[in-house]
Amino acid sequence: MSLTLLAQPGITQQVADTVTTGEAVAFWVLGPLALAGALGMLFARNAVHSALWLVLTMLSLGVLYMVQQAPFLGFVQIIVYTGAIMMLFLFVLMLVGRDSSDSVVEVLRGQRFAATVLGIGFAGLVVGALGRALTDVTPVGLVTPNTTNGGNVANIGQLLFTDYLFPFELTSALLITAAIGAMVLAFASRAKQTRKTQRELVEERFRGERPGSLPGPGVFATANSVATPALLPDGSVARESLSEIVEPTAKERLDDDVAEVSGTGHRPDARALKGES
């Protein structure tokens, strides 16, 4: 319903400086949701769940912005924060993957206790201060800037390009710097290895030590999954069929598996015929 509320600024016009029932309802629904999202983020073991909880909080906050007569900011919040920033977080989480779950054990002695006490203390102080300082505040409301002169978006744009022009330009420099910095950090290692040319790939394939194409996963295997390695005619695992991307540790684990299956760990497989161990 908040959307409808927003869509009709005419309603808020008459009751600008007070909070309407609709807004109160929206607040009492979204506020606890935001808090729940924050708490969920705090307590979720899995980092992806944390991120999702945070998305909930951010969406709630975005809607709260709209309710608070800042429709543009509300949607920017959704687009930028949930659409871009949190998506980036999810991206990185999925790339990092393996480490996304926190261990339950706290290694720093007293950290949790101290953090809880300090957090409660901080919240108490701020809430107390706000409660004392802002009891008698009468909000002016944004009806005037939101209705005159092109509305909320136009007025924000005007502020950005007049009063805040210099900071605005600075943010552009900041963004460019950040983009370049991120590229430098992210591409640092990749720039070293050069891509193989078509010719090299061809020569590798036809003149390498294994004529023909590499074995695909699942060949001669019991399952048709990418995680299942190909087997050589004698039943041993074909090392080349394991993907680095799919399962980072598979190759490391393979040696153990081979040893386990063979019993000795040193039983020669088919490759021994070629002089490899």
């Binding site: 950290q111 953090a115 300090l118 957090g119 203390g121 901080f122 102080l125």
Partner: peptide, 12 residues
């Protein structure tokens, strides 16, 4: 943690 402690002190 110490930063937060300092912030609380300043706030107080």
């Amino acid at each position: 943690l110490s930063m937060l402690l300092g912030a609380i002190c300043v706030l107080g």
